[in-house]
């Protein structure tokens, strides 16, 4: 009995999800079409009104979906096949195929259940949130929002301060894309890196060798710098903190600076320069101690 109710609720939830999707796509469709002839003289205002209305629709649909989803019971265990197991004993020829289909879809839902529970635990543990959805009170939110949109002078100040604190790390700022800074870092004769900023938040890192030409997108031709780029992305996410963006940038730069001995320091765990399978020097630096490790040795 309980299961029939479940199905109905599920059905209505799916329907509201579909309406939400179609209303969202309607918004984008209208947006991409832009002003039309039937908007007339003061087309801009009318267009905005129309958009407002569509967005309101989206809001309403979203709320509906929220409500229906909230009323859904959370499945605690994998679904029980119930009486459907008797399908296997079906004798009619044209219905025998149903059982395999049933088993397949059972497997499928079982997998979804498993994956979603994994995803749920991972997402709830992980602090790598790049959005402000769950980040506390509205007062703080207002303050944090501004870190995406900091005055260029302030960004320059922060970066120049970091530049001054290292004698062997040269940092130059350029602004090829409007107001957002793209920072080039020359670390001694070891490596070059380019970091794209959005306000005071780091968005992208690319690390290359000393003799290579630097740009944002092409990877280094050396394995070791590709590995370092990979690790720099991990570090960028690790140090990410929307509330204290300056600290994040400074910590990242300190971490990057520890690569000054990329080739000369051996791994703290195995004591070798080169790892025996990858033939790479220790391209990982611990986030706190800044000690060098091979990727394979860091655990």
């Amino acid at each position: 009995m309980n299961q029939t109710i479940n199905v109905e609720q599920l059905n209505s939830a799916l329907t509201s999800l579909r309406t939400l999707r179609s209303s969202v796509s309607h918004v984008f469709e209208t947006l991409s079409n832009g002003l039309r002839a039937d908007h007339g003289e003061d087309g801009k205002d009318k267009f905005l009104m129309e958009l407002q209305e569509l967005l309101n629709n989206v809001n309403i649909n979203l709320r509906e979906l929220d409500q229906t989803v909230n009323s859904l019971p959370i499945p605690t265990a994998p679904f029980n096949l119930g009486t459907t197991t008797y399908l296997s004993q079906e004798t009619t020829q044209d219905r025998q195929a149903l059982y395999t289909q049933l088993v397949n879809s059972y497997k499928w839902t079982d997998k979804i259940h498993e994956y979603s529970s994994f995803a749920h635990t991972l997402l709830s543990q992980n602090s790598l949130k790049r959005s402000y959805i769950n980040s506390g009170s509205t007062k703080r939110r207002g303050k944090m929002q501004s870190n995406h949109n900091v005055a260029p002078v302030q960004v320059d100040n922060v970066i120049n301060n970091i530049d001054r604190s290292y004698s062997d790390m040269k940092i130059t700022i350029s602004r090829p894309f409007a107001s957002n800074a793209v920072v080039q870092i020359n670390l001694s004769h070891v490596l070059k890196a380019v970091v794209a900023f959005k306000g005071l938040l780091m968005e992208w890192v690319m690390v290359k060798g000393y003799g290579e030409t630097l740009d944002l997108w092409t990877e280094s031709r050396h394995h070791v710098f590709r590995k370092v780029t990979e690790n720099a992305h991990a570090a960028m996410l690790h140090f990410y903190s929307p509330t204290l963006p300056e600290l994040a940038v400074r910590s990242f730069m300190t971490w990057l600076h520890s690569y000054v001995n990329l080739f000369s320091e051996h791994c703290k765990r195995c004591g070798c320069h080169l790892h025996h399978t990858s033939l790479l020097p220790p391209a990982w630096r611990d986030f706190r101690t800044l000690e060098p490790f091979h990727d394979e040795c860091k655990q």
């Binding site: 004769h189 070891v190 060798g209 000393y210 003799g211 280094s220 050396h222 070791v224 710098f225 001995n261 080739f263 000369s264 051996h266 070798c272 320069h273 080169l274 033939l279 020097p281």
Partner: peptide, 21 residues
């Protein structure tokens, strides 16, 4: 030749390890 590095004193002990191996 170890292509990523351009400074001999930084990379010498790494190269020695490779050569010895």
């Amino acid at each position: 030749e170890y292509r990523p590095c351009v400074m001999a004193n930084a990379v010498w002990s790494l190269l020695r390890e490779f050569l010895q191996g």
